[in-house]
Every structure is written in C-alpha cells, then in structure tokens.
Simulated assay, not measured.
Amino acid sequence: MKYTPQNSAPLDAAARKAVKPVICYPIDSLPAYDASVFAPARESMQLIDEVIIPPRDAKVFDVPAGHFFRIVCPEGPQVGDLNLWNAQNLNERFFSGKTRALHGTHVSTGDHLWSSLPYFRPLATVTWDTLDWYGWDEFGGGVHDVIGTRCDPYTNRLLSGDDYHYCCHSNLTRALAADTGMSLDEAEPYVHDVLNVFMCTGFTRDTKQYFMKASPVRKGDYLEMFAQIDLKGGLSACPGGDCGSKHSSEEAICAPLKVEIYKPAEGSLGNWTAPDISAYSRTHGLK
C-alpha cells in the first residue's frame, strides 16, 4: 500500500506534471547491433558443453570469450536468475542497474549486459530470443527483466517471518562457493542483482509496484547470448517455477533449466575482438 498525499496540490500542479520526459541515457552513440556479424558464427557453431540446473538449485558454468551460450527451457515453464562475472576477476560482474538505464526494463536481441564500474563494458550480447514476439502485454508486462533483484532469504524473513533456504540468492551463493572453493561467507558478496531470464514482470498501473505473472516460456524456448569476454555464469532455477503465483516456497511447480555452450567455427566471427574496459578507467589509472 502506498502512502496517501499529505499535501494539497499547488495551483500549477497540472503544468508541472505536463512537462515532457527526457531519456536519461540516449544510446545513439553506441554501435548499432548488426545481426549479420553474428549470423555466420551462429550457423557454424557446435555444441561443446551443457549444464543442467535442477529445480530450486543453481549451477556455475564457464563460457570462453567469442562463444555463444543458451539458457534453455527443456521441460515445463521455468524462470531463472542469471549472474555473470569476468572469469578472471569476480569483482567485474553484471551491472543490472546500468543495463536497465541503457536498454530499458527488459532485454532482448541486440541488447548488451554491461559490467560493473569501473570496468563498464559489455559482458555479453543477446543474439537470439525465442520469446521476442511477446513484447508488452496489456498489464505492461514483458519478458527477461533487469528490474528485480533476486529472491533472497533476508526479504523472505522480513515479509513472511519464515526461513526458506532455496531462494535464488542462496542457490547462487552455494553454487559459486562450490565452484571456486570459497566459503559461503566469502562467496555471498559476489552474488549480485540478476537478469531474470524468462520471467514476465512489470509495474502495476496504479501503485507502480513490481509484479510478476506466469511466464510465457515453453519447452524448447531459449535466450541466446554471445560472450564478449571470458565469463563465469551462475544460473538458479527459481523456486517460483513460472512465477505465476509466488516464489521462495515449495508450493510452485518447478522444472529444470539447461545451459548450452557453443563454439563457432574458426574465422566465422570476422574481425570481432573482445571489448576493453572503459576508456575512462584506462585514462585514470585502473590497472
């Protein structure tokens, strides 16, 4: 419930509200996405590895720079929470807030997943999205959001008073710890805000609250990305299943997810090179 106003509207309230919005971060200067650059590589790529993420669990996977990876729905409708790190430096990680500011609340083909400051470069680029037909529904919902943070046991305890140990935050922490040999306490700070793959979300029209609804994802759907640098990924199969009712519980019907990693044929990427860290950082002493 939102607070009701405590102050009367001023005489010029309508005029103040009528001011036209301005896009905060115009992206005209960013290189335009050119699908033809990736087309030869997509046509020639071969599957070299796959990872199955069990329901209400998470796994870590590695993707070399210049490779593609797909997050696949192999069975029933299921959403996933994705973390991405620089495989050689976990301090460089996915920056969902800036990705949202640049590309909007939901991502699809042609959008980049940007890394954290001070590195600030594309970690991955979305190259195919079988759910791109969805667009926006009548409620303002879309698919693959960078709005939500990830379900976590701290918020769950705050709102419900219960402890639930298979939230995506917990799953990702355990998976990263197991992969790196870190303790849970050491791994937890590296777990960050996510790309909610396949999740259908938006903001309510009246109170502007974050909502979720049953995902349109079905068996065989996938979100494909191109790794711009060597990546370590973490993917949690959300305990909310398709997030049509609630998450962080044992009540939802959950299904596995799958990550497929593809290697393109030699030379099929043309003159592609991995992006460097931000020019600002390079000129201000970041090593």
Rank of each mutant, 00 (worst) to 15 (best):
L184Y: 06
P216E: 05
Q228N: 14
Y166W: 13
V194G: 01
A227H: 00
L195K: 05
F203Q: 11
P189G: 08
P189T: 06
A214N: 08
N171G: 11
S170A: 12
L195I: 00
D221H: 13
G202Q: 05
A227S: 08
R205E: 13
R218I: 01
H192Q: 13
E188L: 09
R205Y: 13
F203S: 00
A227F: 07
D185A: 15
D162Q: 14
R218K: 14
S183F: 01
L158G: 03
V191K: 09
P189V: 08
N196H: 02
Q228C: 12
R205V: 02
Y222D: 02
L184D: 09
H165I: 00
L159A: 12
E224D: 11
M212Y: 14
Y210H: 15
T173C: 08
D206C: 03
Q228G: 03
H169K: 11
Y190A: 02
S170Y: 07
S215C: 03
E186T: 10
T207R: 04
T204A: 11
P189C: 03
M182T: 12
A175H: 10
F211Y: 14
A214W: 00
T155I: 12
V197D: 05
Y166K: 13
L158I: 13
M182Y: 14
V197E: 08
F211W: 11
L195G: 03
V194I: 15
V191I: 14
D185Y: 13
K213P: 00
H165G: 10
V197Q: 05
C168V: 04
T155C: 11
S160Q: 12
D206L: 02
K213G: 07
V197M: 08
M212W: 01
P216H: 04
D193F: 10
S183W: 07
Y154L: 03
A227R: 07
R218S: 11
V194T: 15
Y222V: 05
H192K: 12
R174L: 04
F203M: 11
L195R: 03
Y164V: 05
R174W: 02
R205C: 03
R174Q: 04
D206Y: 11
K213Y: 12
A214G: 09
D221Y: 03
